[in-house]
Nucleic acid binder design. Structure first.
Lengths: 202, 202
DNA sequence: GTCTATATCAGGATAGAC
DNA sequence: GTCTATCCTGATATAGAC
């Protein structure tokens, strides 16, 4: 196995462990064990833990971009693309109830550590934000596309955090349904932030 | 200074440090230093870190209950009480942008650690949930009070998480305004989850 | 009830053999 | 490129003097 293969395995193992156990709680030994590597050899590939974190963030950004590109390919309309985003809450519900959102929880942890990479991690949100804003603009909401993008991003984060604490799948489903209904009502001519109306889909 | 005073100081220092730096990242030495205590003496008061965590969670629950009771005293209508809850996002915006929501971030961290106290921490949400549900019921929304309580709790969590990542005060203010507008529209006869309407307050 | 001193352990990081 | 052996630091935890 070449060095670049080993490196990739290390980053993928670190990615998973950082998500499941947190950045601080994951030791070099944990990652080395997951890859089947001695601790000593580990340092041939990565000199510091922060270096691994940087590689993990880069991997996540690449994966995110690939996912967004795929949604853009697969879904013909902007509304369906945004719906792809909303429905990752359902798709990943088991992991979210156990470990939260990979992006939100990493940003939270790095913020508390005041880690040098905290802004790099926050860029993951930026990718979603800009992609979502583009979809809302395509939906005819050019004027407030960014506000709408942040709003739906905010809701997905709120659902993830509460889902982890409550571990209630019904809660996720209800809120996703509400997000779908909210999206259906986003048509040109509406003003930015969501307002309640006289009927509901639930 | 008596032992119970020292104990209280330890818990308060731990409360602050767990919030600002995280549970794992906070060492006994950090807490001892903050209180002005030797590390050795520390163990006279608390045997394990988990014991301190338990005391911190108990303190937070007591403080939360006191805050909810005060809101109930000070605000004459259910709507104003719920507004008190929504506006902690503005009141605490500086700390939230730096460290996130104390409840959400602690639950997230303990979930990843699969810590024995993770469900105790989640009870903090339960206190807000039931209090909010009581207010929505008093507002005339008995049928879906709990759903509405979880919805507004979810939004406050989402705003806190994104605020920490983006550190954008304008974002917080816009979303709080939207939450206020959403609350204004919650009247008896509405069905549970929020829907957009034809106009916005922003 | 508070201190100093110390045991023990785990994690990050390095050196050098193969 | 992978290993074993090792160092250093910091963290939990204890013992015992005052």
């Amino acid at each position: 196995m070449g060095a670049s293969d080993t490196r990739r395995h290390i980053i993928e193992a670190a990615d998973r462990l950082f998500y499941e156990n947190g950045f601080e709680a994951t030791s070099f030994a944990d990652i080395a064990k997951a890859v089947g590597l001695s601790r000593g050899n580990f340092y041939y590939h990565f000199k510091t833990k922060d270096e691994i974190l940087g590689a993990v963030i880069a991997l996540r950004i690449a994966k995110t971009q690939a996912m967004l590109d795929a949604w853009e390919e697969d879904a013909p309309t902007p509304a369906e693309r945004i719906r792809s985003f909303i429905h990752i809450l359902i798709m990943n519900r088991a992991k979210i109830m156990a470990y939260g959102c990979p992006v939100g929880t990493l940003c939270n942890e790095l913020a508390k550590l005041d880690h040098v990479s905290k802004d790099d991690a926050a860029k993951l949100f930026t990718h979603f934000r800009h992609w979502l804003a583009r979809q809302f603009a395509a939906l005819g909401r050019e004027a407030d596309a960014d506000t709408l993008a942040l709003h739906i991003l905010m809701r997905s984060q709120g659902v993830a955090t509460l889902a982890t604490a409550l571990r209630d799948e019904g809660f996720i489903r209800r809120e996703v349904e509400a997000m779908d209904a909210w999206l259906d009502a986003q048509r040109p001519g509406q003003l930015s932030l969501p307002q309640p109306a006289s009927r509901s889909s639930t």
